[in-house]
């Protein structure tokens, strides 16, 4: 047995008569009496200098000792930017669903509970899916019902729930006033202005050809989901949707109306197009090895490789 294998054996610890690792706290699952959902990550058991026997060997019993353990929500010791999310608990979920059933829009619910609009819509969507699946589990798939429920119980026990008081989150779950940083703002831009001319954030947005942050935030919160599943919100914010349909973000319009000027000699006008995206690709499509080709999926889930579109 190599040194690394010996270390692995010592790390895993002994197996009991049922074949389970009992001395390693990382092996614990919610079925264990000693399971602690705040001490499941490897960061909860830091390897300190005194635990190292030499450069490569570690005294694992000391590492896994109770007095060495710390509470941690950070899964990886090297990366302190990654944190585990908080789960929407059953009580909060129930409240969200009941307020949706009472006719409140997704935006209103989002504002009330401090949870982002897509997450609220997802909770509502998943509840419908859950009902469908529970019908299946009560009917044709009854033989796996117990196992599925046990799995769900165990998996939800792994994570911390959003702390609530009177059915509402105690702390802010997510920041609702977040906007994406535009790539234009990440590089320098020099604008020459008069010394006396004031220059504020609105002027900066104009110079960079960006929309004001408030407009962007409105657009982000009203544009709920791609497939329009959120009917409540679409009813309530009809005005917004109408204005969006003409200028869908991220999609350039294929055709547009333009005023015909008196001096125009021709009905058509030329617009800019990138080489390689215009016209059909000639040759056998199946032999095409062009890298990074766009894949489109038919409604039945079959991938297709369409020829480049006209711009």
């Amino acid at each position: 047995m190599t040194r690394a294998q010996l270390q692995l054996k010592s790390f895993l610890g002994k197996r009991n008569f049922k074949g389970l690792y009992t001395s390693n706290p990382l092996a614990r699952t919610p079925e264990y009496t000693k399971f602690d959902s705040k001490k499941i990550y490897i960061t909860s058991f830091p390897i300190r200098a005194q635990h190292r026997i030499d450069r490569k060997n570690v005294a694992w019993k000391q590492v896994f000792a109770n007095e060495n353990a710390v509470d941690s929500n950070q899964p990886f010791p090297e990366n302190n930017f990654t944190k585990s999310n908080l789960l929407i608990g059953p009580e909060l979920r129930k409240n969200i669903l009941s307020s949706h059933a009472s006719g409140k829009s997704v935006q209103e619910i989002s504002f009330n509970y401090g949870i982002t609009v897509p997450r609220i819509s997802a909770v509502i969507k998943l509840e419908e899916a859950r009902k469908k699946v529970s019908n299946m589990l009560n009917g044709p798939q009854k033989n796996i019902q117990k196992d599925v429920f046990k799995m769900a119980r165990n998996m939800t026990a792994l994570f911390e729930h959003i702390p609530t008081k009177d059915g509402r989150p105690v702390l802010r779950v997510s920041n609702l006033s977040e906007i994406p940083i535009q790539k234009e703002t990440r590089q320098q831009l020099f604008v020459s202005i008069a010394e006396t001319q004031p220059f504020g954030p609105v002027d900066a947005a104009k110079a960079l050809n960006l929309e004001p942050a408030k407009d962007m935030l409105d657009r982000l919160t009203s544009n709920v989901s791609r497939d329009g599943s959120d009917k409540q919100s679409s009813k309530s914010s009809n005005k917004n949707n109408n204005s969006q349909s003409s200028t869908e973000p991220g999609k350039s319009p294929r055709a547009f109306y333009a005023d015909r000027l008196e001096k125009d000699r021709f009905l058509y006008r030329f617009t800019d197009a990138s080489v390689g995206r215009v016209g059909y690709h000639y040759g056998a499509a199946k032999d095409d090895q062009k890298s990074g080709r766009k894949v489109k999926y038919l409604p039945n889930g079959v991938p297709t490789y369409p020829p480049p579109e006209h711009s």
Partner: peptide, 24 residues
């Protein structure tokens, strides 16, 4: 009867960009 695989919780990081329903 179903029992959770050992060492699963160690890498169980609840994502921020996906909402999950374990029951379904």
């Amino acid at each position: 009867p179903w029992s959770m695989r050992q060492f699963v919780p160690t890498f169980a990081v609840l994502p921020h960009h996906i909402e999950i329903c374990f029951e379904s």
